[in-house]
Write a protein that binds this DNA or RNA. Sequence first.
DNA 1: TTGTAGGCGTTATCAC
DNA 2: GTGATAACGCCTACAA
Lengths: 336, 336
Amino acid sequence: MNIYDISRRAGVSIATVSRVLNCSPHVSQKTKERVLAVIEEAGYVPNAFARGLGLNSMQTVGLLCPNAADPYLSQALTYLERGFRSHGYDCLLACTGKELEARAAGVKAMKDRHVDGLVMMGSTFVETSERGNHYLRQAASTMPVVLLNGHYPCENVYCVLCDDRRATAEAAQFLLDGGRKRILYLYHSRNFSGKHKLQGYLDALESRGLSPDERLMRYYSEDKMSVVQVRDFLLELDAEGLRFDAVLTSEDLLGVGAVKYARAKGLSVPGDLSIVGYNNSHLCLCSEPELTSVDNKLQALCAHCVATMLGALQGRVMPQLTVFAADLVRRGSTLG
Amino acid sequence: MNIYDISRRAGVSIATVSRVLNCSPHVSQKTKERVLAVIEEAGYVPNAFARGLGLNSMQTVGLLCPNAADPYLSQALTYLERGFRSHGYDCLLACTGKELEARAAGVKAMKDRHVDGLVMMGSTFVETSERGNHYLRQAASTMPVVLLNGHYPCENVYCVLCDDRRATAEAAQFLLDGGRKRILYLYHSRNFSGKHKLQGYLDALESRGLSPDERLMRYYSEDKMSVVQVRDFLLELDAEGLRFDAVLTSEDLLGVGAVKYARAKGLSVPGDLSIVGYNNSHLCLCSEPELTSVDNKLQALCAHCVATMLGALQGRVMPQLTVFAADLVRRGSTLG
DNA sequence: TTGTAGGCGTTATCAC
DNA sequence: GTGATAACGCCTACAA
């Protein structure tokens, strides 16, 4: 069943059928109805490949995700996919992991398939070295690229992100103003977003006239990070003699690990130790007490990613950078 | 840059270029090398749309997922995508939700794009009524369909699942043999898998000479279910006077909710109340104490889904049903 | 072993 | 408003 069959049954040429399919205005109402009736009756759907060949597009966007099993990213994935689908775009998924090579391979795969646009989820896609971002520039030379929670100033790259620096600063200030003296900042990423969060932590210290202590700024990350590992890492720090009365983290999982640590040490939360997570994921509600966390407005970010991509695909002028403000959601793991 | 450009540069016909690209054996080593060199130098990649049109395939499988934000399904998504990609297949994603209509729409979208095969993730895709499975049969009439954790005997439908009935029975027996008398069975789904789990619970009671109590078999489900809601639901049951010394659940989230309930009531876990989850997701490690849970071998299931799909696509004869056995992973939420 | 030519199903550009 | 017809870029008999 192809366009010729339809044209024959409707007694018109394939050009007319094509016009009807593409809502061309140059078709009389009568023929249009007749053709539509035939299409309906035959259950005809235009061949997507042929259409793709002609239009050089199959209405598809590529979603690049380091790890779709991550609670935060999987939530983003859902928002993005639903958003694009509701606007007639299908989504091709690639779980690339964090390695540069694999990410570049993912981009190439999408490019080879002539995807209309690309969304890169999470700040891991932006390298600190310019050389490492070559693949990104290259991708953007072919199609619009939207960076969810990433920042990279480049033609045809659109950045949608949350003000992590400020959010982290506000969270730290909240802890300090609540009487905490020594905040352990626990982070899992050294990329763009990771650096900004760390800077926010430093901002907060400075704003309160405190000087930073290197020992209180700790990086911890594993390929398959588990709550238990995080707990054990904190127990090690404790065994080394490090003292702190609050833990501020760059991810909820780290925060949950801190709660576990407190329990293992017999510390009361938030009495002896205040804990703040990041992302406001469903993990926050699983821990006991529930985790205070930074809500970085994922749904709004994703909606904006979709809108930006659609705009770019329509050739409209879109902002290169859109920044949302985060909220601190206070729960049982902090005082007040 | 197309196949003509390459043929010209290499001084051969497009047929020869095509043969080289498709690894046809009927090409001399010399020309093959020459053509490959040109292709390499030009950075040529065959147009995917044209190729799709000719072969009626773009090496793509559709992944239908009720909700990619679900921890269990997002993990499955990652396994499946990586598996297919490593075998040269790209994955198109559709987050359909649980509504029949939306699922059917998802199937249609995939069909219209001429996806090579379809994986439906989770038992929600199989309806209890035969009429509701029409869309499934129809999908299978066009392409192989693999059901992850679903069961539906039908030509061209391949079911890969875990023996939920037996797993649930063993979990319940474990609780009974540990001295528990009244196990509350809390479940969130009434579909095929849900029914089987419930039956497993009943099997266990019967095997220990106990008669079931309707009040101890409770259904609870919300669109966006949260741990807190589950806790409150159990508090309600408690307020109604229902008594139980163990909670067996059909999903980890429900189990975590039960832990929350215990804490709210001041009950000790597992002293006063034993709790068992299902899926062995990362939620298990977040709760305190950690949740005993049924490990239903997701990775193995997904690997098998991929292998089955690939086999079916190659026209090999594949088993219609593959069943894996689950494991009970014992943690702090149960005695012993 | 290699080349020629027709087909895949659309869209788009012309005439009429 | 409608109809031929040439792209689009590849695959694949069939011929040489």
